[in-house]
Design a protein around this nucleic acid. Sequence first.
DNA 1: AGTAACTCGTACACCGGTGTTCGACAAGTT
DNA 2: AACTTGTCGAACACCGGTGTACGAGTTACT
Lengths: 200, 200
Amino acid sequence: MATTQTKPAKRADAQRNIAAILDAGVHCLSQNPDASVGEIAQAAGVGRVTLYGHFPSRAALVDAVLARAIEEGNAVLEAVDLSGDPRKALTRLIESSWQLVNRSRSLLAAAQSTVPPARIRSLHAGPMERVEHLIERGQAEGVFRTDLPTTWLVSTLQFVMHGAAEEINAGRIDPDDAGGFISGTALAAFTPPGRRVPKT
Amino acid sequence: MATTQTKPAKRADAQRNIAAILDAGVHCLSQNPDASVGEIAQAAGVGRVTLYGHFPSRAALVDAVLARAIEEGNAVLEAVDLSGDPRKALTRLIESSWQLVNRSRSLLAAAQSTVPPARIRSLHAGPMERVEHLIERGQAEGVFRTDLPTTWLVSTLQFVMHGAAEEINAGRIDPDDAGGFISGTALAAFTPPGRRVPKT
DNA sequence: AGTAACTCGTACACCGGTGTTCGACAAGTT
DNA sequence: AACTTGTCGAACACCGGTGTACGAGTTACT
């Protein structure tokens, strides 16, 4: 027994490489969801075998990459002020969120074909919860509709953000416009029937 | 000269098989976008070789399947009455559309990885145009917002429908609810800022 | 009935990706 | 300096999918 020596402590060298692989992973998979292990290893400036030394399979790699990306995104989102008028707060949240979504769009596609859906959802739990609470507060204050389930409203916001990302990627809308389009659409969509849609 | 004999007229037998392959194609690809040629052939009750006799490559097959599915959907949509109050008309159109979208969702995913994007868009031109005209009419009559581009509104509708399909497929919402959710969301999203969101 | 069109199964070559093994070598830890 | 831990490249077996070739057997047209 003595000191719980379960951790032989990875060598500094190895840690650097793991980080490089993760970086390369998010980079490659963000451009092509079907990027091969070889490509990623090469982009990381590392041998393919070395990569397998750290990640037992492609699936494990994708999982790790996704997890890190979401964790980072979650950290960014924590900085957003969600107090005050829920509509204003939502706008702020969207402004920060949609770019994250845009970047990791292709990565998510990669994950969907390798990582089990349950795992993906659990990874998304953090960010998800944040939006959900905000929307619930807005509903309680009467500025967001209650005739549709909260979860549907959350989903709707996701659809629109993901869709906007695709439109940008296809060159059909200007990235600078996206934020305004998304919040304009979401704010209107969340307005309770019978009430006026807020201006801009 | 004489009778334009460019068509040796396929044998009846062959036509039946082609139809069976197309049917099996839409069926298989709707469940798994990565369905192999072998699977499809088997589902059609046909040898793999026979399939290759009619479609030179997997890509050509997917293209044909998608084209037929869209053409059929388009025919269904033509029956929808788009006159009268644009909001009511939109509700009707959604009611007919979203189920089509739901069915061919996975098929579209299949196409996206094999058929060039330009081709996909041109296939979608028909249905797309229909929604677009309706929205434009609504904008002209002042019941739909004009502060966002028409194309964005069209896209938004698509996002929400596709998203709803995913939610159903994941078992998170009841198929019977979907139609109401989608039109409720879209109608609110299309309402001009400063005006009241229509009830139900 | 005769002929052309079509189908079928098996078998094959090919490709690209995955995951593993090996032995030589460098880099870090103590 | 000694030793453990990683790294590297090449080579390999394996898998599943695509597309082709062949030859024998059926099915539809006229």
